[in-house]
């Protein structure tokens, strides 16, 4: 299988210089041009194209089996590398220097953000070539991640002008173009709805009750394909009920449970670090309105 020259360079890079330098190599992450890459980029296990790969014959000769195993290992390494690289690039972003508690500003960690966007693209094809919006984008981690995965147009919306400036710098550092709007999510109105996918890490609603549902309601109105969102695992039943019953979603599915390791951000936090269980959700909105 031919992965093109970028991969070879990367493998060498990884061996010699270590992962820290990988973060700088953005062009390598973007890889070969879109059309070529579609063919050579293997998808994560469980994705739709893996179903179409021919099944292995039951009694393959040993030589062929070894070859296949090697190939599979190589393929896993490539997927793994892309994910790691995305995580590395996101780890280099500047995060909130003075987080505001009333807005529940907590940075989306590179680990969670990279997995969230990676799943959205590799399992559901919802990012590359799509119009992606990031609600409550903060410093723009999810927006930048979408742009890195070749979303056609990325729009970030936030109520805090300082984080928008940071988001702009973060995108500019990686030579990405993202559009930003300074607004409150609930007071924004749209005439036309060209957004395909909404990705967001909304406030969990611990400071202001219902803040998470406000975000979800607007997201389900605006998106036409899918909404990816993080919510506390403890609110799982409630979220599901609200999304399906009140906000007209066609489906609401927890893709995985993640640990949100929260470093001590505000003065009232008395522990050094807490792990919060969060769910990564995928909602399918009712696009026929």
């Amino acid at each position: 299988m031919n992965y093109g020259p970028n991969v070879l360079i990367l493998v060498r890079c990884r061996a010699q210089l270590g992962p820290a330098l990988l973060a700088l190599n953005r062009t390598a992450l973007k890889g070969p041009p879109r059309r070529q890459r579609r063919q050579c980029l293997p998808r994560l296990a469980g994705s739709k194209s893996s179903a179409s790969t021919p099944r292995r014959p039951a009694c393959a000769p040993p030589a062929a089996r070894g070859q296949r195993r090697r190939r599979r290992r190589r393929r896993r390494a490539w997927v793994d590398m892309k994910l790691k690289q995305l995580e590395g690039l996101l780890g280099g972003l500047t995060q909130f220097p003075n987080p505001k508690v009333e807005l529940e500003q907590y940075a989306t960690g590179p680990h969670i953000a990279s997995r969230m966007l990676y799943t959205a693209e590799n399992s559901f094809d919802d990012i590359t070539g799509k119009f992606v919006a990031d609600f409550g984008c903060g410093c723009g981690t999810l927006a930048v991640a979408s742009a890195l995965l070749d979303a056609e147009h990325v729009l970030g919306i936030d109520i805090d002008p300082q984080s928008l400036e940071l988001a702009q710098e973060n995108a500019a550092d990686l030579e990405l173009d993202i559009d930003l709007i300074w607004s409150d999510i609930k007071s924004l109105s749209f005439k036309v709805l060209p957004v395909d996918t909404v990705v967001m890490n909304p406030p969990f609603g611990t400071r202001k009750r219902g803040a998470d549902m406000e975000f979800l309601a607007v997201a389900l109105k605006v998106a036409s394909k899918a909404v990816y969102s993080l919510h506390k695992t403890s609110t799982r039943e409630h979220i599901k009920k609200m999304a399906l019953r009140d906000h007209n979603a066609i489906s609401a599915e927890v893709l995985c449970e993640l640990r949100y390791d929260l470093p001590r951000t505000y003065k009232f936090h008395n522990k050094k670090e807490v792990d919060i269980a969060v769910d990564l959700w995928r909602f399918v909105p009712n696009a026929r309105r």
Binding site: H153, L180, I181, L188, S189, F190, K191, V192, P194
Partner: peptide, 13 residues
């Protein structure tokens, strides 16, 4: 701001 973003925005005053 791209014109695509302008195209979807409406005022809510």
């Amino acid at each position: 701001m791209r014109l695509l973003t302008h195209n979807m925005l409406a005022s809510n005053v």
